[in-house]
Simulated assay, not measured.
Amino acid sequence: MSLVALAGAASAISAGPAAAAVSDQDTTFVQSIHEGNLAEIAAGNDAQQHAATTCVKTVGSILVRDHSKLDSDLKALADKLDTELPALPAAAQQQLDSMRALTGAAYDSAWLKAQDDGHIQALALIDKEISSGRNTEVIAAARAARPVVAMHLDMVRGGTCHASKAAGTVRAGTGGYLAAPTSDTYRTLGAVSLAVGGLLAAIGAACMVRSRRRTAKKR
C-alpha cells in the first residue's frame, strides 16, 4: 500500500502544477476571444467592400489576415481543452448591419470607432487572462495574441486610421517577432547600405593617400 502511495506522489510531483486545469475564467476568455475574432473577421471583410478610403480597406484586410490566424490557433486549443466555442454574437452582426446603412466618410468613421472600442476591450480581456488565468496554455495563447491586438489598436486608435502602423510589425502567429520586411524596409536598408559603403570608400581613399605620402617621404 505504501508503494502505491509513493507511486502516486511521484506522479503528482513529475506532473508539476495542474497545467491542464481550466478555470471558468479560462473558458470565458477562450469563448470571448473567439467571438471577438469572428467579429473582427466579419468587420474586416465588410470594410474591404464598403469603406471609402484605401486606409480603412487596408486595415480591414489586415484584421481578416491576423484574426483568421489567431482564431485557427484558438480553435485547436479549444478542441484540446474540450471547450465549446460559440457562433458570431448577434450584437456584432447587428452592429455590422447598422454600419452598412452608412456610406462614405460616415461608414469609415463608425467602423474605425467600433474597431477602437473592440480592440481596447480585447486587450483588457487578454491582460486579465495573463495576470490571473489558470491554464498555462490559455495564458500562452493570450500572450501570443497581445502584440497582434495591440498593433491593430494602434491602427485605429482614437477612431483614426493609421494603416502604416502595420508595416514591419508583428503579425499573428509570429509570437511577437517582427513580420517579414516590407518593400519600404528594403529601401531603407538599401539606403543605409549605400551610405555605409560610401563612408568605407572615403576611409579607404584617405588611407591610400596617407600611404602614398609616407612612401614618398621615405624616398
Rank of each mutant, 00 (worst) to 15 (best):
L96F: 02
D116W: 13
C55G: 12
V170N: 00
L6Q: 02
V149R: 00
T215P: 00
A180C: 03
Q25S: 13
D82W: 00
L194M: 04
R214D: 11
A20N: 08
K69T: 14
H34S: 13
G175K: 07
P89I: 09
I62Y: 00
K217G: 02
A43I: 03
S2Y: 07
L96Y: 05
S132L: 09
A142Q: 06
A145C: 03
K165E: 15
A7E: 08
V64D: 01
D117S: 15
D71P: 03
G118C: 10
Q115H: 14
V138T: 11
A140S: 13
P181E: 11
R219N: 14
Q25K: 05
M1H: 10
G44W: 07
H67C: 03
H50F: 08
A52R: 03
L178F: 09
A43M: 15
R214Q: 10
A52T: 10
K128A: 15
K113Y: 02
D97A: 15
T83Y: 01
D73S: 13
R171N: 06
T53W: 08
S131F: 06
G173H: 03
E129W: 08
Q121N: 15
V209N: 04
V64Q: 05
R219L: 13
G158K: 12
D184G: 08
A106T: 06
L77P: 04
R157E: 13
A19L: 12
A10Y: 10
Q48P: 01
D97K: 12
Q49H: 05
A52P: 02
A51D: 00
Q48E: 12
S193I: 06
H119C: 10
G197E: 07
I41H: 01
L125S: 14
A39H: 02
G175I: 12
D46R: 13
L96M: 10
A141D: 04
P17S: 13
L96T: 05
T53A: 15
V149D: 00
